[in-house]
Every structure is written in C-alpha cells, then in structure tokens.
Design a protein around this nucleic acid. Structure first.
Length: 553
RNA sequence: GGCCCUAUCGUCAAGCGGUUAAGACGUCGCCCUCUCAAGGCGAAGUCACGAGUUCGAAUCUCGUUAGGGCUACCA
C-alpha cells in the first residue's frame, strides 16, 4: 500500500506538513523546571466545581514552578455544546481569581498568547495536517463503518463479544481495506472516520509514571481508536496530542476518568515519535448521598455549579484555600506558619495529592470562610460585601453606598478586637446578620412570649428605663454598671453566685435583663456586643424603638 | 461481563515494617461570659474483612467485600 497516495486521497486540501507547525510554535522560553499546564473544559454548561478544582491544581503547579497556565476550549463535540458557555466559563474561572496567562478569553474577545488558536474548532486545519501525516506513515486508515452507538449499545455489544470469546479484537475491520476499495468508497461519497492503526500488544505492559499515582504498569493499547470523526473533527485523544504538543504543555492535569486512556494516548504520541507530556490524574470530587459516596453531580447538587459560591458570596480566597487543602493537606500547617501570606503563595505539590476521591465538606469550607472573613477589617469587609452586592443585590449595594459611614460602624462591631467573631460565612449573610441595624424597627418581627416570666408592665419598664437613660458617652464598663443598677432597681440579681443559690428570690439576673434589652432593640436573642449596637443606634433611635415596642407587646 | 483505581475517626487526612496511630473540620463537656460567637482547656471517635510473610503489619503479599472510574465517531 502506498500510504502517501492514500494520504493525498484522504486529505488533498492539506498542503502543509507537521514540521511547519512544529516550527511555527517553538518551545516557550521558560526557566528549567517551569511547568506549562492548562485548563481545557468543554463549553457544555457552567463551570463545574470539580472543574474549578482541576483548574486550581493546574494553576498552582504553573505558578509555583514559574511556568504558564493557559485556557483552551475543547469544543469538538458540537452536539453537547451550549451557546455562550465558553464565555461564561471564562468569566466564572476568573471570578475565582484563576486568571490564565494565555489562551481563550471568551467568544467576543481575542485569544491571548502565541500558541493559538485556543479554541479547538478553530484548529481543524492543524488536526488535518497531523492526521494526514499519520496516514502517510501507515499508522492511520479510513473507516467507513457507521457505528452510531450510544453508550449503552457499546456496553451491550462489549458484553456480548466477551461472552462469545475470551479474546476480543480491538482492531477495526476497515484497516485491511485496499487503496482501491477506499478510493471507490470515497468516490461513492461514503462518510469516513480516521482510525489509528494500533500496533500495541495488550498482553504486554510498559512502565508509566503518573505524577499523582506514581509508577504503574499499563497494558499496551490495541484499539484502533478514532482520531478524526466522520465530520472531520477530532475527538479528545487526537486533539490532546496535537494541542498539547504544539502548545508545549509539560504536565496534563486531568481527571481520573482519563487514566484508562493513557495507553491509547501514549501509542498516539509514539506513532508520531513525539514525547508525551507528564500526566497527573486527579481524584474525583465526591459527595455523601444517603450514605453513599458519589461524584458531585450537576443535576443533583447546587454546589456542583461553581457559581453557587459566587452567588452566595463566599470569599474567593476561602474557596481556593479549601480546594488547596483538599489537594495538599499540609497546606493547613503551612498556613499556620505563614499567617502573613495568602493561599496564593502556597507551593502546591502534585506528588502530595492523595489517591482517594475526596468528599465535599461544607463545614470545612464554611470554617475557612468564617475564619477568612474574621481577618478582614471593617473597611475590607465593606469593600468586599459591596462588590458582591453590586453584582447580586443591587438594593443592598445602594443602601451600603448611601449609608457608608453607618454601615462601616456596624461592620466594625466586635471586629476591631483581638479575637474577632466568626459568624459571617459569606457576604450575602451580612445583610441578614445585621438586619436590625439596617432595617427600621417596624420591619422586625417580635414575639414577646419568649419571655413568659415577665408581664408587659415589667418588660416596658425595662425597655423604657434603659432607652431613656442610655448615654452613648458612657464607656463599656460604666454602661454595664448602669444595667446592673437598673437590674437592682427592678428586683433582678446582679450576683451570679447568689442568683444560682436563690433563683426564686429574684425576677431574674443581669443576663435576663440583657436578654430583654437585646431582644427589644434587635428582635434577636443572640447578637454581637450589645453595647456597640446601642451606641451605634444612639439614644434617639433607642427611644424610638422602645416606643414602638411598647405599642406592640 | 472485562479492565483499572481506591480503602486510617462522621469528613479531609499524616503515616512508607517497631508511633501512646499526628493535625484540621464537625460533635460533646468544662472555663470565660450580657446572649451568641470567638477564645482557652478537655473528651469521644479510625487502620473494611480474612489469610499469609515477619520476632514484629495501618504499612508488604494474596484473597474477599465495598466505593469510584473506564470499556463512544462524549469530554
């Protein structure tokens, strides 16, 4: 068989050879040890949290080695594509501060970098050229079978084949077609796909080192895998070879689900005489569902959509910290010893990634988030909450802007202290958390039956007395003394030990008085520092609230 | 069905033939206290199971079981 002739027959329009592209895209000028990584999602929907997890790994590997991280859009499956998903993917990714050094930047903005195009559908000429080369060296052949199988069909067929015979051949029948047969098929207008002519012996193994899993023995590939679909577009495997070669990816970070195909990918690289990149197959993010571990699912889990966390207003650094912690569990110790640094300074190591599929843990993420927000100054919290509100809660953003000084005071409650509170988890919580500061008292809901021991008269006495006598000039100690005075006046006990010994002798203790005050002015049984709240509300507002409360008890 | 990967507290996990089997989140208790947080102190809780190798196994080997993945002209 004259393979060159066959190549011409199949790809008459291709006039370049692969050397043209090899010289067009020379290796990057990077320091020794610098890794080139990529995030290569398909525009089939929103950014999946598992995708973000992959992207974070790739990003950190590139960053910590002084390399390059780029974004490539893998849109070779036209059936599953969703309009504008690519653009949305880019925006979601960058919203998490994962900003690629080069690559795709959305549908309406040009790619950045010298190794483009970074959208696979724009690279078909290049794929064809590589495909033609493979035909010309006798390692690829056209396949005229029309196997429009679904996944289930394939599984069924495989099971049947295995039932019939011990050994199954992965070689495709079309590999034996003569030039004349191919020619007449093509003249007849038959559609064809291009397949690799595999020469692998699956009874033999080769040594493969995965950057995460370590050394493994893998069986040689024997499948005549499709490298160009009958629509002229390559499936993943071939696009991977061409793109990661030409874009000089040094380490391919991809999900565990690709691990099975490395044998095929390696054979493909071998066929071209090319060195394959290093591979890092990452565990899959899972979730506990009815006692079972399962993959984070787009359909079932709101948190599978990375935008969920943006919507809620989770701090980006907290999410990244959480992810980094899953990936490298020594991150926590590092963070403890490097409190002046941020997660972005952490040096992530692929070799330290475990092989287990980790389960997503909201508690842990929330802890990172609370702790992070607790480190923010009032001004920083204001800025971040405002930035969030501008995107997700316009009314609140307007409120924040017009009442900036007041909001700043509120946000500073219990914040300017040694051990700040940790109860705000995400920015959307701010509004609700301080609703009694941001809303008129008439918007708060009350139910004074929470104080069954006290009648209306006593409640009003406490509230009115407190409001009328409140003096914002008193410091915290003096303020507390004044509460104790009020307590004594109304028959409450101010000595805890005494109260514990003789609870029946009193109406209650100081804590009970405080509870009434707190509830009256905030509608809450729990709040941060009551003193600060009252100072910010001020004498007049307290009196106003007291009057209103009296009318509704 | 076949092939591959994985298995340490509820969760994330250190561990690499000899450890009282780290740490973090969560849970519980105590202290502090105007509530709630925070903080301090403390507690409970793990080597999936069965064989083997070894003086000695969470660690090595083999089975079993369970979970995950792949088995597409999807990525």
């Amino acid at each position: 068989m004259d393979y060159k002739k066959l190549a011409e027959l199949l790809y008459p329009e291709v006039d370049k050879d692969i050397d043209y592209y090899m010289t067009k895209y020379p290796a990057r000028n990077l320091p020794v040890g610098a890794e080139v990584t990529r995030f290569a999602p398909s525009p089939t929907g929103y950014l999946h949290f598992g995708g973000l997890y992959q992207a974070v790994i790739g990003y950190f590997v590139a960053k910590t080695t002084g390399g390059t991280f780029y974004l490539r859009l893998e849109d070779t499956d036209q059936k599953r594509q969703i309009a504008d998903a690519g653009t949305a993917l880019y925006h979601a990714l960058t919203s998490f501060d994962i900003v690629p050094d080069e690559g795709y930047t959305g549908d309406n903005t040009p790619d950045v970098g010298n190794y483009g195009p970074y959208v696979q559908s724009n690279r078909v000429d290049i794929y064809k050229c590589f495909a033609k080369h493979l035909v010309s060296i006798g390692r690829a052949f056209p396949c005229f079978c029309d196997k429009a199988e679904s996944k289930d069909d394939v599984l069924k067929r495989r099971v049947e084949e295995l039932d019939e015979s011990e050994t199954i051949t992965d070689h495709d029948d079309c590999r034996n077609l003569s030039y004349e047969e191919v020619e007449s098929n093509i003249k007849a207008g038959k559609k064809w796909a291009l397949r690799l002519k595999s020469v692998g012996d699956p009874s033999k193994t080769f040594e493969f080192t995965d950057e995460i899993k370590g050394k493994r023995e893998i069986r040689y590939n024997a499948k005549d895998i499709v490298i160009m679909k009958n629509n002229g577009i390559p499936p993943y495997a071939f696009a991977h070879l061409v793109d990661d070669t030409l874009m000089h990816t040094t380490t391919v970070v991809r999900g565990e689900e690709w691990y099975q195909s490395v044998a095929a990918h390696v054979e493909l690289f071998d066929a071209f005489g090319l060195k394959h990149p290093k591979y890092a197959h990452t565990p899959v993010l899972c979730k506990l569902d009815n006692g079972n571990k399962r993959k984070l699912s787009k359909r079932k889990d709101v948190e599978a959509d990375a935008r969920y966390f943006l919507d809620k207003g989770y701090p980006v650094d907290a999410i990244i910290s959480y992810l980094v912690n899953i990936v490298n569990s020594d991150y926590e110790e590092w963070a403890k010893n490097n409190q002046d640094k941020s997660v972005w300074d952490f040096e992530l190591k692929l070799s330290k990634i475990g092989s287990n599929n980790p389960m997503f843990d909201f508690d842990k993420l929330n802890d990172y988030s609370k702790s992070y927000i607790a480190t923010l100054s009032a001004q920083e919290l204001y800025d971040k909450t405002y930035a969030w509100a501008k995107l997700y809660d316009n009314d609140f953003a307007t409120y924040m802007k017009t009442n900036k000084d007041y909001v700043l005071q509120v946000l500073n409650i219990d914040r300017d202290v040694q051990k700040p509170r940790k109860d705000i988890i995400y920015y959307s919580m701010v509004k609700e958390y301080f609703d009694y500061m941001f809303s008129p008292v008439t918007d708060l809901t009350y139910d004074f039956s929470v104080f069954p021991k006290y009648d209306k008269e006593l409640l009003c006495k406490i509230i009115n007395n407190y409001a009328l006598s409140f003096d914002a000039k008193l410091d915290k100690n003096a303020w507390f003394e004044s509460i104790k005075e009020l307590a004594q006046k109304l028959g409450f006990c101010t000595d805890n030990k005494e109260y514990k010994a003789n609870p029946d002798k009193y109406q209650g203790n100081t804590a009970d008085i405080c509870a009434v005050i707190r509830y009256a002015f905030t509608g809450r049984l729990n709040t941060p520092d009551l003193y600060s709240i009252c100072v910010i509300l001020g004498h007049d507002e307290l009196v106003h609230r007291a009057t209103y409360i009296e009318s509704i008890i």
